[in-house]
């Protein structure tokens, strides 16, 4: 074009090129979006499923493992010694500082998502150097409050949304 027009002024043709290009991009993006979005979890998966768990059968010092959203939830009934252990370490220099109080609704009951915050394996309860959880995949140790103490995991075990419906019933989700 510079052969025929010796200045750099935009021409009507340039305008047409840019408009056509812009329409093309918007058009392609709007067609591409459904193709990409189909990868995302659909409504049936996303619908936050709620489960109710009867916890009356859990003895102090033991735990129950239930499935929620395809992931395990540990519901742990802690003994007084275990609670004392967890609170004793509140002020240590933890990798992800959190007080035990902030992680429970009732001190006796600890409810955590049983998914290692490193790469998603399921930690084994009552194992590891802190007697809480130990992840066999890459060696993360969690304490009795589900806090990360040692190993590659960056954060504490996640606390799912839950509430006590009654003394013997927990609603998770």
């Amino acid at each position: 074009m510079s052969d025929t027009l010796d200045d750099d002024k935009p021409t009507r043709r340039d305008f047409l090129y840019i408009t056509t290009g812009a329409f093309g991009v918007v058009g392609a993006a709007s067609v591409a979006w459904p193709l990409i979005d189909q990868l995302n979890p659909d409504a049936s998966v996303k619908a936050v499923s709620t489960i109710e768990v009867d916890i009356s059968s859990i003895e102090p010092g033991s735990f129950l493992k239930v499935a929620w959203r395809g992931k395990p939830i540990y519901i742990r009934r802690r003994t007084n010694e275990e609670i004392a252990d967890a609170e004793k370490d509140d002020n240590l220099n933890l990798p992800d500082p959190q007080k035990d109080m902030e992680r429970v609704q009732k001190k006796e009951w600890l409810v955590v998502v049983g998914v290692c915050t490193h790469l998603g394996c399921i930690p084994i309860a009552n194992q590891g150097e802190y007697e809480g959880w130990f992840c066999p995949c890459h060696g993360s140790h969690y304490d009795i409050s589900g806090r990360i103490r040692k190993g590659p995991a960056p954060t504490n075990l996640e606390i799912p949304p839950y509430e006590f419906v009654s003394d013997s019933l927990i609603k998770i989700g």
């Binding site: 990409i36 990868l39 995302n40 979890p41 659909d42 998966v45 959203r69 395809g70 992931k71 998603g120």
Partner: peptide, 16 residues
């Protein structure tokens, strides 16, 4: 979640 098609490895993941 987009890669998995859910919150964990499941049927959508296997299919894709």
């Amino acid at each position: 979640q987009m890669l998995l098609g859910g919150f964990a490895v499941d049927n959508p993941t296997l299919n894709r």
